[in-house]
Design a protein around this nucleic acid. Sequence first.
DNA 1: GCTTGACTTAGAGTTAACTTTAAGGAATAT
DNA 2: ATATTCCTTAAAGTTAACTCTAAGTCAAGC
Lengths: 129, 129
Amino acid sequence: MKTYSISEAAAHFNMTPHTLRYYDKEGLLPSIERTPSGKRVFKTSDMEALRIIECLKASGMPIKEIKHFIEWCSEGDSTLQRRYDMFLERKASVEAQMEELRKTMEVIDHKCHYYKTALEKSMEVVHQS
Amino acid sequence: MKTYSISEAAAHFNMTPHTLRYYDKEGLLPSIERTPSGKRVFKTSDMEALRIIECLKASGMPIKEIKHFIEWCSEGDSTLQRRYDMFLERKASVEAQMEELRKTMEVIDHKCHYYKTALEKSMEVVHQS
DNA sequence: GCTTGACTTAGAGTTAACTTTAAGGAATAT
DNA sequence: ATATTCCTTAAAGTTAACTCTAAGTCAAGC
């Protein structure tokens, strides 16, 4: 099975090795293994965990809450419902963020139109004179 | 013309008076007037400015950059092009954020489906036994 | 007259997610 | 042999946008 060194894993997710050690320290990578000499070995399952961590981060979830999710994963099937509920909440949160961005975009579009028109008007004046 | 006290303006934008004073201190409300006794009076134009400030904030713009925009507004028509360019940049930024949320949503939807199926499977087992 | 809300300066505290610094030691690649 | 990459602890620094505290003055409405 393909494995990754800390800097390979970091490059893959556009992070620094330092950040990955920080995540490990914060308990986000509990199942990571080490070489006999103590180096972290990122397995496919760790890379997948990182992918989900990135996704949860992108959804606006703080690291401490992501940690809870990671713990639930380690606890097995008894936490399936909790994890499902969490993703449903994330879904709702992302939908709300999208809705806010949509409203923000409306205002921006109005302003773009306003300034475009204002600039065209000032161009006309230049051409007339 | 309708005017607002600091707490009325704050309530309107779901902020605290403290935050509005902070914005004023940071130079985001340069055209605000005062009563003879020194109280801030929020005119319609200040409320509109706050609406745009909120929009720029929601688009991810830091307060220091919003301040630049406010300054450009005070400088008149010579900054029209700069302001237009800024809103075009904001538009691009918000589009990028929406795209990232869309990708995040895809992963979340996959996970929702995965957990839903897993839960249904574990329910079946319960019913069989 | 009293309560409520507004004002001031000036600086300290908060939170999140890193990021950096220091100061080494060990192992792997060429 | 040397350069690179990895490891460690432990703590301090960074940034943004507030948020709060102190300590007091001032004014408007009932």
